[in-house]
Write a protein that binds this DNA or RNA. Sequence first.
DNA 1: AACGATGATTCCCT
DNA 2: AGGGAATCATCGTT
Length: 394
Amino acid sequence: MLQQQQPLTGNGPSSGRGLGLSGHPGMHALNSVHQASQHRSDGGDSGLEGTENGHETRRDIGDILQQIMTITDQSLDEAQAKKHALNCHRMKPALFSVLCEIKEKTGLSMRNAQEDEPQDPQLVRLDNMLLAEGVAGPEKGGGAAAAVSAATSSGGMSPDSSLEHSDYKSKLSQIRSIYHTELEKYEQACTEFTTHVMNLLREQSRTRPVTPREIERMVGIIHRKFSTIQTQLKQSTCEAVMILRSRFLDARRKRRNFSKQATEGLNEYFYSHLSNPYPSEEAKEDLAKQCGITVSQVCNWFGNKRIRYKKNIGKFQEEANLYAMKTALVGQGDDSPHTPNSTGTERRGALRCATCLPPGRSRPHSFPSNGNWQGRNSPPNGASPHSDHSENSD
DNA sequence: AACGATGATTCCCT
DNA sequence: AGGGAATCATCGTT
C-alpha cells in the first residue's frame, strides 16, 4: 500500500513547496512519509523521478498540501471554495489513501488506549444516595417520604413539626427540580455537542479518513467529560440534601411546649390516675389523638411527669388539687366523684381508660408512698399494687 | 441575663 | 420493650 503511494509523495529537496509542513503537528506523520520517500529519490531510481510527469505530480501534491496548510488562514467562504476545489482535485484519492495509511499506523498506538472503563463507584454511590433521598428516581415516590419518615421516626411528628415536615418536603422538591433541570441541561448540551462533533468529523471524513471507531471514541470522550460534570452536579446535590436534612433534624430538636389543651388533657389523665399513672398503649394512643401529639410524646410526657412528680410531690400538690377539683366538678351528680376513671365517669376531656385499671380498684389523686408507685418495673396497667390509696385531696 | 419549666435524649436496669 | 433517672437544650418569664 505504501509502495503505491511513494511516487505521490516523492518531493525532491529542490521542489521547495510543501517543506514548511514539517513544523505543523498535524502534518508530522505525513512529513515523515515525505522524508522517507526522499531517500529513495536521492537514489534516483524512482520511476517518476526526474521525469516531466514526476515534476508535475510533485507540484500537484505540493499545491494540495500548501492549500491544506493555508486553509485555516482563509475566510470561511474562501476556505469552503478551496475545500470544494480540493475535494474535486484529481490527486485527492491518492492523498486520501496516504492519509489512510498513516492513520492505520498511528491508530495502532491508540487502539487499546481507552476501553470502556468500569462504572465509577463514587458515581454509583451518589446515584444510590440521590435515589434514596428521593431526588433522583420516580417523581413523588416513596423516596422523599421515606427519607422524611426515617428522619422523624424516633421523635414522631406533632402538628407543629408537620409544618417543618412540609417545609422539608418543599425544600427537597426544590432541590429535586433544580437537579433535574440542570441534568437535563447537561444532557442536552452533551447531545448537542456530540452531534456537532460528529457532524464535524463526518465533514472532515471527506478530506481525511475518519473511521466509525474514531467517531465512537470521540463520542466516548465527550460523554466522559460531561459525565464528570454530572458527577459534580450530583455531588453538590447530595451536599445540599445533607445540609437540608441536618437542618431539619436540628429543627426537630427545637422543642415547643405543648398547647394548653394538650397539657391539660395529659394532666387530667395523670391526676385522675395518680395511683397508677401508666397509660396503656390504647390510652396513650387516645391521649395522643386527643392532645394532638404523638404516642412517643405522650410517653415522654408521662415519663417526665412521673419522675418530676415523685421528686417533688409538694410542688405538685396544688396542681393535683386543682385537677382533683376539676374532676370532681365534672363528676358531680355521679355517686362516686372520686372514682371517675374506674367507673367510666371520667370527665369528658380526660381520657377514658378502659384498659387502665380494673373497675373499682383505682383510687385517683393518691400519692405514691415514699415516692414510689409500684417500684421499678411494675406492670404498667391493671395489676397495680396500689402501694398507697391515700387521697391527696378532698 | 438568669432562672425555672419542660420536652427530648440517653443510659441503665429489669 | 418499657420505665427510671440523669441530663441536655430550648422556651418563657422575670
